[in-house]
Design a protein around this nucleic acid. Structure first.
Length: 501
RNA sequence: GCUUCCUUAGCUCAGUUGGUUAGAGCAUCUGACUGUUAAUCAGAGGGUCCAAGGUUCAAGUCCUUGAGGGAGCGCCA
């Protein structure tokens, strides 16, 4: 007898070759804490059962997806999040008792120890013959919201605290992790440095969108100056501050010292955007490279996206196959096709010509100088070329002040990577490295050098040609997962009027 | 922010020109079944028809307002 069984006389201690088991003998003792073995992850059992060995004892812990069977045998599909596939637990009700079997319902959490065997049934290669079952947590089937049948994405959004337990969201979260990891790997392997740019910024007009204020003021009693304006000198930072809408300007400071850097962090936009492609809080990757011109920039962007897609195909095929089978029958084929084709590279002026010659009637009239609308971008990508398109050399009037001005005096070296259904997945440019040209542009836009004095100093001191771009992480995930609403590729979406969870 | 659609059982949805007691599948509960595969079979329970107001002999159905959600557009990544 071991020490533990002396403290718990209601349990029988059974010693076997590889493990110690406690069998519950009293029907009332259904929620005992018992343990013995090291937990195996279900992915390891399913992928490499030979390493554990058929006939060996295993310990698994996870959440019940379904329970089937009859009075003689029960089949419990257990999922621990390590892989989309469930592990089949075979349990004989006579061995465990009705009271315990009743607690095993969809959503309940179990600790199971038993023997790993080749499956006697079809549909799976391995299963575990249960010898000990401990119920960590029950899930009352009358009120537990998740069922083994499918749910709508809209319903799952309302229970974002539980949706990670669905097959669908497990796939998305594993892919999300894989893409985040692959992003760091891609840049690290290329000698890029990960730069942490600030989330709180005092730059008032970065131009990328409406910003969230950051303050410690008591909003019911805001300090005022003599002329009635908000007195930000009394605020935490002594000036008006916001959450960042981009790390790019600070990223340039890093690139002009370290060579190649990238940022990867959260970004905040207070735009009242209600679409399946916008979030108020999202993650963005912004590489910035010294000595890269616009062509180098495009090459990197294309290589980057293809690397990430290849990484997903190489490392997350189980998840992709599930999403392909259940949601988007063309997902894997679409991912593979992107790898095969070169992205079309096209000047804005040529794009306008194509649109002017198009048979299609657009709601927004096409002429040189307009900002391309969704319908125009979609026509180019989905109808005309039927593949990703990189558009360059936009009119300077519709692009940001920091983009390098072309010799024609009319266009700047911007680039937008456009993807089918998603639209703009990457936006970037070669940066204006000439101090005087940058200054002139800022004055044209009625902005002041002073608010970006530190940015201008990089052009005063050792300026260098450089380029960069921004990739919306969730938009990448839309493409990689085949999902159609951006709220379904981030664990806890923040959108106008919604900050639950 | 603009336009438009939707809201009926726990979930997904049907519900006819407004007309008796609002239905189905799945889920749940009870029972059957010796290996299931979103198990199957039989039975049962389950409804503030989003909310408020209005029209009408009569409203799930028509009208008004509000709330929540989706899609399209704008802004953008």
């Amino acid at each position: 007898m071991c020490a533990r069984s002396r403290r718990r006389p209601s349990l029988i201690c059974v010693t076997t070759r590889s493990a110690v088991f406690y069998k519950i003998i009293s029907n009332k003792n259904l929620l005992k804490t018992s343990y013995s073995m090291k937990r195996s992850r279900i992915i390891d059992i399913i992928k490499h059962p030979e390493e554990i060995g058929f006939g060996s004892k295993v310990c698994v812990k996870g959440w019940v997806r379904t329970k089937r069977g009859n009075s003689n045998v029960a089949f419990i599909a257990l999922n621990d999040g390590s892989i989309v596939t469930n592990l089949q637990i075979v349990a004989e009700p006579a061995k465990f008792g009705d009271d315990l079997m009743k607690l095993i319902t969809t959503g309940s959490c179990l600790h199971v120890e038993g023997t790993l065997v080749e499956s006697a049934g079809k549909g799976q290669t391995v299963e575990v013959q249960a010898e000990m079952i401990e119920v960590y947590g029950t899930a009352d089937p009358e009120v537990y919201p998740l069922q083994k049948k499918g749910h709508s994405m809209e319903f799952l959004r309302e229970i974002a605290h539980l949706r990670p337990r669905t097959n669908y969201f497990g796939c998305v979260l594993r892919l999300r992790h894989a893409m985040a990891f692959a992003i760091h790997k891609f840049f690290n392997d290329k000698g890029f440095f990960y730069l942490h740019t600030p989330l709180i910024t005092a730059s008032d007009a970065e131009g990328a969108g409406e910003m969230f204020n950051v303050t410690t003021f008591d909003l019911n009693n805001v300090p005022r100056t003599e002329d009635g304006k908000v007195d930000f000198k009394k605020d935490f930072f002594g000036k008006h501050t916001n959450l960042t809408v981009s790390g790019q300007l600070e990223g340039e400071l890093g690139a002009l010292a370290l060579g190649n850097i990238y940022t990867f962090g959260p970004t905040f936009r207070a735009e009242n955007s209600n679409t399946p492609r916008h979030l108020a809080e999202f993650w963005m990757i912004e590489p910035e490279m010294a000595f890269y011109d616009i062509t180098d920039n495009m090459d990197l962007a294309e290589e980057f996206i293809k690397y990430l897609v290849q990484y997903a195909l190489d490392h997350n095929m189980d998840d992709l196959r599930f999403l392909n089978d259940m949601f988007d029958k063309e997902l894997i084929a679409r991912l593979e096709s992107v790898l095969k084709q070169d992205f079309i590279r096209l000047g804005y002026t040529e794009a306008i010509d194509i649109l002017l010659k198009a048979d299609k009637k657009f709601d927004y009239k096409v002429s040189w100088g307009i900002d391309l609308q969704s319908e125009h971008e979609r026509y180019l990508v989905e109808n005309h070329f039927k593949c990703p398109v990189i558009l360059t050399d936009y009119p300077k009037e519709i692009k940001a002040f920091y983009m390098k001005q072309n010799d024609d005096g009319k266009t700047v070296r911007a680039m937008d990577v456009l993807f089918p259904t998603i639209g703009e997945i990457i936006g970037g440019s070669e940066r204006e490295a000439d101090y005087q040209k940058l200054l002139n542009r800022v004055h044209e836009l009625n902005m002041t050098e002073q608010q970006y004095w530190w940015y201008f100093e990089t052009r005063k001191f050792g300026s260098a040609p450089h380029s960069g771009f921004g990739l919306g992480f969730e938009r990448l995930l839309l493409f990689v997962t085949g999902m159609t609403n951006i709220r379904d590729v981030i664990p806890f979406p923040r959108t106008p009027q919604n900050a639950e969870f």
